Amino acid sequence: MKKLLFLAVGVVIGVFAARRIEESEKGKAFLDSVDDRTREFTDAVKDGYQARDRELRGE
């Protein structure tokens, strides 16, 4: 139960911090760059997974 409380507090602090950072132009640019890099990474993982899946299926 204690771990769940710490998780919830961490999420609340993270959301609050992200909103405060997003208010400034530099902060918004930083969060946008993080979002772009995250999308690139997840797209690369998805492409790799799909390629390996096709390879294993013999397609």
Rank of each mutant, 00 (worst) to 15 (best):
I21D: 01
S24P: 07
R19F: 13
E55K: 14
V34K: 01
F41D: 01
D35Y: 00
D32K: 09
K26L: 05
R20W: 14
R19Q: 12
V12R: 11
R57K: 14
A18D: 10
G14N: 08
V9W: 08
E23C: 06
R39C: 00
Y49W: 13
G14A: 03
F16I: 10
F41P: 00
V11M: 12
A29I: 05
V12Y: 07
K46W: 13
D36M: 06
I13Q: 07
A17V: 15
E25M: 06
V45T: 08
D43I: 02
G27H: 03
R20H: 10
R19K: 15
R54L: 14
I13Y: 02
Y49S: 10
I13T: 09
V45Q: 00
A8W: 14
G10I: 12
R20G: 03
E22V: 13
V12T: 11
D53R: 11
R54G: 13
E59D: 10
D36A: 11
V45L: 08
V45Y: 00
R57T: 10
R54C: 09
G58L: 06
G27Q: 03
L31V: 02
E23D: 09
M1D: 05
R39H: 02
L56C: 08
K28H: 09
A29W: 03
A8M: 09
K2E: 00
G14D: 04
K2I: 07
D35S: 03
G48F: 02
V9Q: 02
R39V: 00
I21M: 05
D35R: 01
M1Q: 07
E25I: 04
R57Q: 10
L7Y: 10
A8F: 15
G58S: 05
Q50L: 12
G14V: 09
I13D: 04
D47T: 10
I21P: 03
S33E: 11
G10K: 01
R52H: 15
V45P: 04
V12P: 01
R57G: 07
L4V: 09
F41L: 03
I13E: 11
V45E: 02
E25T: 02
R57A: 11
D36N: 04
D35W: 01
K3P: 06
D32T: 09
T42C: 01
K26C: 03
G27Y: 02
T38V: 06
E40A: 01
V34D: 01
R57L: 10
V45H: 04
R20L: 12
G58V: 15
